[in-house]
Design a protein around this nucleic acid. Structure first.
Lengths: 189, 189
DNA sequence: AATGATCCGGGACAATTGTCCTTTTTATGA
DNA sequence: TCATAAAAAGGACAATTGTCCCGGATCATT
């Protein structure tokens, strides 16, 4: 639900402190509501979140959003786009204050060429992402709301973040009206 | 919808013919209905389909299936499981006669260590898979059946494969009853 | 404190989808 | 080719979900 990756964070952290002129990797901060990535826009940056939480969503042509996942410490963004050299699959927006390591796509790709460790970490990251996306898709398709909803509520507690009803509904793939009904049910039980 | 990957197929094909004693990579054939992978079972093989089509699905605890995708020429299976050293995420079953290159997980992993090309190809494969799974999940969540259904019908035409109603429904994430209704609608329009 | 803007909750109804079950069609083997 | 099984189609009803809408709460700004 909230994705994190300590290996990657540690790796990038090391990279950041070891560089001599602080040019390749910089640390940038975003406020709540800022966008780190814009869907369909060609990007040139790859980032790794060092702090905070962002949401990652697709806006379909019918204007509905589908909220994939919440990204926390150590999650990488823009790597797919860099690998495939294409526009952003989704929009990534900070839902709390966020700090992120930022590097250019070309630096990222050169890292992959030169650094076997980076390569391995990335393979693991992508594998995790597939596992995650796949099991979520199937889960969501085959189960009732209740479980997902209560997990979502827990997440907000634990991470001290507040999601709007719209975001919650987009994550669960339902309308706000249905979400309200589900919330009412939960309270009663 | 039907996934294929010519780069990977070519790469594995070369590997297969170049090996001296035909031990590391072998070619195996499966009949329609045979399972190449079983969900939750620990596996030790990674395979690449050279011919035919297989379906890839998860059976949830409530006994419903969720059909992820159809795998064709050049699609790799078992790679996530090998990378993460875990049981199979899903079951893969041949829906036509299938031939596949088979290698042990350890050989696969050693390939990754030694061969940069393999590494790059795999990164691309995983990136593709994420793009695919993600856009499908959002699409399915946000659109009506019709589009997905007509695509599914096209696929069957083009690939000359026949899916059972159960499979079609599992792919679309609906019940057979709803599928029948949707089919009727399509005919009328 | 008054004014909007925005978000949240929920009523009423329509539309969609699921469940259960029966009928019809198709495939298959003795 | 007939019998039987398996797959597909669809009727009837229930349950769920969506759409549209309005009233109330909250918050920021003047």
């Amino acid at each position: 639900m909230l994705r994190t990756n300590t290996d990657l964070l540690a790796f990038i952290g090391r990279l950041y402190t070891q560089q001599t002129r602080k040019e390749d990797v910089i640390l940038r901060s975003f406020s709540k509501g800022d966008r780190l990535l814009d869907q369909d826009v060609q990007i040139s940056k790859v980032m790794v979140i060092s702090d905070g939480v962002a949401k990652c969503f697709i806006t379909e042509e019918n204007d509905k959003d589908y909220l994939f996942e919440f990204l926390g410490k150590g999650e990488i963004i823009g790597e797919i786009e860099a690998l495939k050299n294409r526009g952003c699959l989704c929009t990534v927006e900070a839902i709390s204050a966020v700090n992120a390591y930022v590097m250019s796509a070309s630096f990222f790709l050169s890292l992959l060429d030169k650094n076997l460790e980076m390569n391995k970490i990335l393979l693991q990251v992508l594998a995790d992402r597939i596992l995650n996306t796949s099991s979520r898709a199937s889960f969501q398709q085959l189960y009732s709301l209740e479980h997902g909803l209560s997990k979502l509520l827990q997440l907000q507690q634990k991470e001290q973040i507040v999601l709007s009803r719209d975001d919650m509904a987009a994550y669960l793939g339902i309308t706000v009206r249905s979400l309200n009904r589900a919330l009412k049910q939960l309270k009663q039980s």
